[in-house]
Nucleic acid binder design. Sequence first.
DNA 1: AGGTAGATAGCACATCTGCACTATTCTACA
DNA 2: TGTAGAATAGTGCAGATGTGCTATCTACCT
Lengths: 207, 207
Amino acid sequence: MRADRIVIADDHPVFREGLRRLIQGTASNAEVIEADTFRDMIQLAREGPVPTTFIVDLMFGDRSVETSLSALRLEFCRTSIIVLSMVDDRTVAERILSKGVDGFISKTLSPREIVAAIAAVRNGDQVLLLEPTFSALSDRDDEPAALTRRQRDVLRLLTAGKTNKEIAQALQISPFTVRIHVSALLKTLGVSSRTAAAAKATAYGLA
Amino acid sequence: MRADRIVIADDHPVFREGLRRLIQGTASNAEVIEADTFRDMIQLAREGPVPTTFIVDLMFGDRSVETSLSALRLEFCRTSIIVLSMVDDRTVAERILSKGVDGFISKTLSPREIVAAIAAVRNGDQVLLLEPTFSALSDRDDEPAALTRRQRDVLRLLTAGKTNKEIAQALQISPFTVRIHVSALLKTLGVSSRTAAAAKATAYGLA
DNA sequence: AGGTAGATAGCACATCTGCACTATTCTACA
DNA sequence: TGTAGAATAGTGCAGATGTGCTATCTACCT
């Protein structure tokens, strides 16, 4: 069994240190690395073996790392990502989780609960979400990037790795038409290549 | 809130029916659809609104649906996929989970536990747990498709949607060299386009 | 010493892709 | 009944992509 390699990123040294001690108390063989900025975390993660877990504070100063999570998820596909947050906002949590993060944990929980949640992600190899007062989830129909039905059809097949010709065949339309849809959805998604679109679709759970 | 649309695929009518009743007992407004083959499930899923949850038996007769799960995950990105299995094998579970499935639940658990696990996935939008005796996870170093180190570097960036030029810049090598690596990894992965490679990498947890 | 494999770099060629432009048809909506 | 938006189909063009070739350098194995 490969040793766990856990990278903690938080700009509060006290909290970070406390978390490190808590983790090492339950997983003594784990290698725990601390970073006080998101950038440092990436830097440290790229050195040496791929980390098994990221534990990231959502806010650094007044800046949220939310926009960087998709890229993090893409670059470290096999690493568990756990986001810690001071806020308990449900919509924020759902938005974060939709980026492919494995856990969203409130810092307001007790240390024991936080550690238990982290351990669950690490041991169970999956996901979980916390928040004390979560009940039902929202309708999910939150703006899927304003793609038309046909564009979504195309995006789905594109994300599956199909070429324009294959998409045309699958949807029984002309390859020319497929290109129109591809161009349109690239513009909407704000990217300039189909592979980037596929990456974004995967990261955001679109398609 | 959109109604849940749950598709159950299992070749044992009794189990299927029991599961349906259990689910409707806890989520009375859910639309539950039954299929007795994997193929039927896909067929039913493609008709009407996109399902919110798939609950799939791992084995149909003596045939495993394992190889079809990646395709399922790709086609239904926003649908929770839960795999049920008679076997408790840890390595099998991990292999299945690595395909992007949201849950792996043993049929040997009590009905109440199964329903709770399914409800957790459905409500929590993430979440899943499984197997009573899971402890540590394996080393994860199971043959990453025999790609070289450099090819993995390239694949990782490629999967993130980067162009050859961007990859070259990121890795500080020539675009020509990037193309060599791309060509090589395409051949190894058995695909013929970068987007297909990205799809495969995402589905198989490579990169 | 010789052989193999990986990483590097380049060239040439055919194809694919993304974009700009035009144009027709159909549906929904005011 | 227009009008707007979506889907359809096409052409032309520039740039990106994938493949096949050659070639050098390093590391490792026999």
